[in-house]
Design a protein around this nucleic acid. Sequence first.
DNA 1: TTAATTTATTGAACACTGTTCAATTTACTC
DNA 2: GAGTAAATTGAACAGTGTTCAATAAATTAA
Lengths: 200, 200
Amino acid sequence: MARRTGLTRQEIQSTALAVGSDLIAKHGLSKFSMRQVAKEIGYTVGTLYNVFKNQDDFLLQINALTLNDLQCFIQRGLKPNLRGKNILLNIANSYYVFAKENYARWRTLFEYALAEETTLPKWYTDKIASLMNMAEQALSDMNLSSTQIQRTSRALWASVHGICALALADKLALTRSDPAEKLIRELIDKYFIGLTLEGK
Amino acid sequence: MARRTGLTRQEIQSTALAVGSDLIAKHGLSKFSMRQVAKEIGYTVGTLYNVFKNQDDFLLQINALTLNDLQCFIQRGLKPNLRGKNILLNIANSYYVFAKENYARWRTLFEYALAEETTLPKWYTDKIASLMNMAEQALSDMNLSSTQIQRTSRALWASVHGICALALADKLALTRSDPAEKLIRELIDKYFIGLTLEGK
DNA sequence: TTAATTTATTGAACACTGTTCAATTTACTC
DNA sequence: GAGTAAATTGAACAGTGTTCAATAAATTAA
């Protein structure tokens, strides 16, 4: 068989990514395979390799979708009329909720992109920078130097990430009275007290 | 062939783990395979499965060794005569250095232990608790409630972990003037200012 | 010393995996 | 309708984790 009328190259690509995303969400990255994706979209594995360079490429594009979803999720959760610290708290909470509700996909973001030393394409690192930029924006009207804004947004973003990672992996022995959300709030609260009081 | 005189079950186990640890350190977890380990220790894969339950079991024990190494490394780096915050800074720095110098093994700690939903054995979670306990000890003479000690040690531990993870994966766009060490110091400094000033 | 038993070790087998590529079939162009 | 270009296949290759009957050596019993 060959060239069926029906799906265009683009359509195959997007349905494959959608299906792959679903498979990861349902069964985790460890069960994921190119052959499974091929089977689910009704094509052969050969076709998949005609549209994607290899598995790395495929997963990179899956991650791109996840990053988009994450950014949208944070955007949508952004309550108006918040300023400075409260915007950061809002973002951090959304980050945690997204990571929790999309755990397998969120993990794939780091399990994979971090794995190989092949340098990531610019459009991908731009997506990450764009995320980080949300935090920087939140700090922009707070009378801080630009280096301090960068440092704060990076330190807090990475910290919140760490709390999410260990908490969701059940590595923090959290209690019902001390959930991850509380740790995140604590951290940001204390950090900001230090940040505002130090300069005086 | 069968039963050679020579290595005991225990010896096979420990040399296999040492070799496996080395392979991960050299080529990363993605290139690791049971067959490769078998070849390097001069046995067949079947023998490996006679000593280890499966690959999960093998990697869990590799991780146990890594956790031991990590704990020893932090212990040895502990400068005397430090108190409170400075002990935490000391621990956090050692954690970063260890993660950096043993990147592949350190990553395996989280890439694997977090992967499956099979509950970890108690002796393993105890090891983790023992690590966390170092941070709690550092806070013990600081006039904090026990819940505050727990909260602080967890929040900071996870935060430092997050900074290490993203920094070492080159996901923070760090500059020469703003390295990971500085972010860690900043975070702990600010947090502690908030911690001590808040109660007053 | 020999026979019986236990135990370590092997290596083939199974069902997977990512990846490649010649062959084939279809659609499009002239 | 012939010729070209492109899409699709499926077999092949080298690798993976895992199992298990067969085997060979060490240990024990007679």
